[in-house]
Amino acid sequence: MAPADRPPPPDVPGSPPDRSGFFRSRAFRASLLLAGGLVFIAWVYFRDPAEPGNMPSCPFNLVTGLYCPGCGSARALHQLLHGRLLEGFALNPLMVLSIPFVAYGLASYFLKSFTGRGLPVIPSPWWTGWAVLGIVVAYWILRNVPFFPFTLLAP
């Protein structure tokens, strides 16, 4: 490539501004994520996942017939968005209970991506992640037990 074909280095007066930096920035990635999330929420609001055809089925459920920890979460979100808290909770209690924590973490991420500063980290013991793993796996197993009261955990 001959020297005349290269764009001048950024600190030379009159050079074109380097716009590629924005597309690699954290704010851009966060914007994409936020846009995608809003599209998903809008879709779930208008189209009830409980009705066939509105949402692809869970692959785990298709193959095994069992419930994964996420089964019912989209339907639950639809109920919650329409103000029906109890119905939403009944469809996937774990997902509904996790909303405050996930929302706090997401809010902190978006604030940090757009303003540079996130929310304060909630102090939690070092084994918190392991406890979450245990809860998710236990929930996964128990909601597939076909008798009361475990059927309450199933969608």
Binding site: V102, G129, V132
Partner: peptide, 10 residues
């Protein structure tokens, strides 16, 4: 952990 939980549940 938040990302891991979110993607597991959805």
């Amino acid at each position: 952990l938040v990302w891991a939980i979110l993607t597991t549940l959805f």
